[in-house]
């Protein structure tokens, strides 16, 4: 059995594009499950927080204490990849939430400052080719009402920028992207995340 076959990855399935992530991970040989409640995190090496609406997913995460369970999952050695709304949920600081909403629920795990809807509305959504650090060829990236990372803390590695804005970053077992690698069929970022999960699993087994 190859290592990727033994990797167990969860996809947060409260709302959004979770099926696309599941399909892509399965095509890479991972065992994938949908996560809606805390107990479904058991035995996983990695977790993907998909795109969708960050306010919706955040609310649903808090209601069944999945937020603290995901924080515990990370503390216990799990790897996490947030895309678009998922990256917003990872961030320590979120800009662009309307004032009446109050404090937007977040996992507060990654030292990044995220600006929501940074490129504008749906009419401003776009596809482009990104140069990603460590990749030989450009990565096709779809940005949908996408956020950007206005600032990153110490120890956060910037992996890609677009128009001078940070759009992909890594910090230890955390990966955050403001675009949708699950929509364009290029599996390289998911492969990167599987290798992070594999490392996390190996470290936890020691």
């Amino acid at each position: 059995m190859s290592t990727s076959q033994s990797l167990r990855i969860g996809v947060l399935a409260l709302q959004g594009a979770f099926r696309e992530h599941k399909r892509l991970l399965e095509s890479l040989g991972a065992w994938v499950t949908e996560v809606r409640l805390p107990q479904q995190l058991e035995g996983l090496s990695g977790l993907i927080l998909p795109g969708g609406e960050s306010t919706t997913i955040g609310n649903l995460m808090v209601e069944y204490h999945l937020d603290t369970a995901i924080q515990d999952f990370h503390a216990a050695g799990g790897a996490i990849f947030g895309t678009c709304a998922g990256a917003i949920l990872l961030a320590r600081t979120i800009h662009g939430t309307p004032p009446q909403f109050g404090v937007q629920p977040s996992l507060n795990l990654m030292d990044i400052t995220v600006q929501r809807n940074a490129f504008g509305r749906q009419l401003d959504s776009f596809r482009t080719l990104l140069d990603v650090s460590g990749f030989g060829a450009p990565f096709p990236a779809v940005f949908i009402r996408a956020p950007v990372f206005k600032a990153v803390g110490e120890g956060v590695q910037v992996l890609a920028e677009h128009a001078g804005q940070i759009v992909l970053a890594r910090c230890g077992r955390l990966l955050a992207g403001s675009f949708h690698p699950e929509l364009t069929g290029d599996a390289r970022i998911h492969e990167l995340f599987l290798s992070m999960s594999r490392e996390a699993q190996a470290a936890a087994a020691v």
């Binding site: 709302q15 959004g16 979770f18 609406e53 678009c84 959504s125 776009f126 949908i144 949708h180």
Partner: peptide, 22 residues
């Protein structure tokens, strides 16, 4: 040449983000 907007991929992709939602 690199940047596209308003394509079917971008419209369908946006629609996918509403899944499981109200």
């Amino acid at each position: 040449q690199q940047t596209q907007q308003g394509t079917t991929e971008i419209k369908f992709g946006f629609a996918e983000m509403f899944k499981g939602g109200v």
